[in-house]
Design a protein around this nucleic acid. Structure first.
Lengths: 337, 337
DNA sequence: TTGAAAGCGCTACCAT
DNA sequence: ATGGTAGCGCTTTCAA
């Protein structure tokens, strides 16, 4: 009672294995009679092709694995869609592998993991050195997106420039600056993105000899945000002040909490986030935006070229930030909110 | 300049292929000399095993695919961890495949997709009928978690009972009831979970002849929640009223918005959510909780048994809800918040 | 239009 | 402790 093979189908249909294969793969030059026989036999036996055998024979899986921190956030939603669309054009399947916590990263060190059965690897927002001890257990093309590393093709945002841009805007307002930084849970892998943003901000501040009056280290978790808000209020900064948040999510959440405390954006404080998310725009929070779709599409292109072996040198594509200005970086325009 | 095979390594090392294989797979009874030779040859050639060939030979991948809506939410974090831990015990790798929007679901219909190269499939929170036209392109074991279907092994929460329980509690307080229901974006697949919760709530309400004074249909997106809040306030229900939210996330978000409007839990309204999340507990919101870890572990167990062929009949394991009572379902205990 | 047969890279059996 | 070799299921020549 073992799984029927293509051989069994051929026997049942009274034809050769090659005929079965041809029918299954829609090759031309098959008589209608043979096709019917084969299809009937497939149905009768409940035959399903052995995918491992197939990709073994073909030497490829027509799939690309994407390693990413999590799914379901607007940022990765946009990025993945862009990548997916481009790869689909060349008939490549996409398989997403969310990292989800440090314990499970061990699994990615196993060279036998399903993730490495694909034809190429796209690593999003991760430093491969942190992910793997040494080099990945992978001899196929690898492209980094939203991250960079000298040893890999990298397509990413210029987070350093973004940080600088954000800081310049904050500085230009001449207000005391409150930094809202993203801290990772212990054991969690920090994203290189925040490292660069932070560096850019610090660089610009240092150049102007300005020190933030307060730096909040927090995460998007409700409790952490509440504590950060309390910390901020305890410090009682003179209004107006300037909140420079390291992500739109952070900015959004803080805005909500401050509103409860009676502090309003544009009146009591200015605010700037990162990512140019729709949510931020809608909440009228200015944001240093990243061309997410461009980066996704370009990363996919680079990967395709790498798979074709067209690439002679290490690719490194950097995309500059753009300011999405809204009301939150201008003082005294509104009465309420 | 083709990828070196195990054969090449054997030749270079001056040994047989079986010796190379044994070294690579850490078999016993290998001389130190042979091991060194092989390892040196592997290094010299930059050999990496062909995973497709390996799993072809072995007839299995040691991996289980999990189809789930998104990653990064507390619920799936808990569920996946429980599953992962149990599967790791029997040395099974886990590969997650977040669905992420209707367009990408097409990919899951392709029988050649990477997702089906694993040894078994775990489908979380999805109705397979919606996912696939007919039966999945998959002849290996399939188990449903947090969803149920007569044709598949199913391990799930009794969301119907949960809905009834929640409604009973709401009814027992004798207050006008506001329902906060979860609506899916058009094109998105609705989760069977909410279908059942809703049915349970409606059942219990109907039995008591009670109609909610208002039903809000919303999603966790900031804008949707804001509009829902406005809708609620526009309706101006007499305080106190009872908010029955279909998920803790919904409850939490609404609580924040109502607080801005000056309405406080326990004073102006009571509130009950679903899921028993840590965030809800922390915000002192009562919740109808689900034994997530139990369900995850059980689902993993069922899957393991199915893979061993131990299962004679269709498994159907239902887990009852438990009430996590906090302050939000009791009136007038607190002065502020 | 069709069938026979080679062979992809690997593991495991059977000798030695 | 080691090497030779069969064969997993499939696709693709090559002949017919």
């Amino acid at each position: 009672m073992t799984k029927p093979s293509l051989q069994d189908v051929a026997r049942t249909a009274g034809v050769g294995t090659s005929t079965v294969s041809r029918v299954l793969n829609n090759h031309p030059n098959i008589s209608e009679r043979a096709r019917q026989n084969v299809l009937a036999a497939v149905e009768a036996l409940g035959y399903t092709p052995d995918l491992n055998a197939r990709s073994f024979r073909l030497g490829q899986t027509h799939a690309v694995s994407v390693l990413l921190p999590v799914t379901g956030t607007p940022f990765y939603e946009r990025l993945m869609t862009a990548i997916y669309v481009r790869l689909a054009e060349v008939d490549l399947d996409i398989a997403m592998f969310p990292l989800l916590g440090a314990q499970r990263i061990r699994r990615f060190r196993d060279p036998g993991a399903l993730v490495y059965r694909s034809d190429a690897l796209l690593i999003a927002s991760q430093n491969p050195d942190q992910l793997y001890g040494g080099r990945p257990p992978f001899s196929k093309p690898v492209v980094l997106v939203d991250a960079h590393h000298p040893a890999y093709h990298s397509v990413y945002f210029d987070n350093l420039a973004a940080g600088r841009l954000a800081a310049e805007i904050a500085l230009s307002r001449g207000l005391p600056i409150v930094l809202v930084d993203h801290v990772f849970a212990p054991g969690d892998l920090g994203s290189p993105v925040f490292v660069d943003r932070r560096a850019g901000v610090m660089q610009a501040l240092a150049r102007h000899g300005v020190t933030p009056i307060l730096t909040l280290h927090t995460s998007i978790k409700p409790q952490a945000m509440r504590e950060a808000t309390e910390q901020l209020l305890a410090r009682r900064p003179a209004s107006p002040f300037f909140v420079l948040a390291f992500s739109d999510e952070l900015a959004l959440s803080l805005q909500q909490h401050l509103r409860v405390a009676g502090l309003h954006t544009g009146r009591d404080y200015l605010m700037l986030g990162f990512d140019g998310s729709a949510d931020a725009a809608e909440a009228e929070i200015s944001s240093v935006a990243q061309p997410v779709e461009d980066v996704g599409t370009t990363a996919a292109d680079v990967l395709i070229q790498a798979m074709q072996g067209t690439l002679k040198t290490m690719v490194r594509r950097v995309f500059p930030p753009a300011l999405h200005e809204s009301l939150s970086t201008t003082l005294c325009r509104r009465t309420g909110n």
